[in-house]
Amino acid sequence: MNMRARGETLITLAKAGHARGGRPLVEGIDLTIARGEIVTLIGPNGSGKSTTAKMATGVLKPTSGTVIRKPGLTIGYVPQKLSIDWTLPLTVERLMTLTGSFSSGAIEAALSAVGALRLLHAAVQELSGGEFQRVLFARAMIRKPDLLVLDEPVQGVDFSGEVALYELVRQIRDTTGAGILMISHDLHVVMAETDTVLCLNGHVCCRGTPSAVKSSPEYLALFGPRAASTLAIYEHHHDHEHHDDGCVVGKGGAHAHRHHEHAGHGHG
């Protein structure tokens, strides 16, 4: 549908692995992230998603293999559900300059881009889950990052908020051309726009487009029927409420599952 303009390569992992105390957390990861590309890491808890992301961003050094980053790479990070202690007085405005200083014009522009300008003077503790995630997106984007890293970005956000956030991710990719690395705990929150899904379980267990991964036997072996049943529920909501919303959460994947779980209910 839309042109995937492949930009320069930002990060290359070649046979990269990380071991702690002699025990490998992940090994043999081959992965490249280019400008304008969306890469999603999925896998069960402890499968090495965070470790892989940390190797990519340079927080962890690989203990085997190599990781090459474009020199001067700027990274914007959207953390997993962030809880800020009430004792820390923090307005949205102040949060925007947490890791760098920016003009008030830049702050307002970044917040309007995610539709959160009206929250400028609000205390972060008073934001709803969805509002807070938008603000965190704006905070990451104000750095004009080459690479945006999203750690389980929709946790604690309700379904319609989830759809809106994925729409936002797509928009950010399209307007800024940043590379996007997403960590997700389940395939049902993989965006249809994802170029490459890496399914991890201590190693790369399968990879490809969302629909290819979804129907691969390795994926089904890893996630089993539980994932399939959650997906059916999501699919239903999705069809019902957001059919004509172009942006689409878990579209490809859900289809694949319907073949298994609800053959006959049909799609398309």
Partner: peptide
């Protein structure tokens, strides 16, 4: 001040953005 505060708000975030 900035790195101290960023690390207080979220160590993961500070780390990922080079602090």
């Amino acid at each position: 001040w900035r790195p101290l505060l960023a690390a207080t708000v979220s160590p993961e975030l500070a780390e990922a953005e080079g602090l």
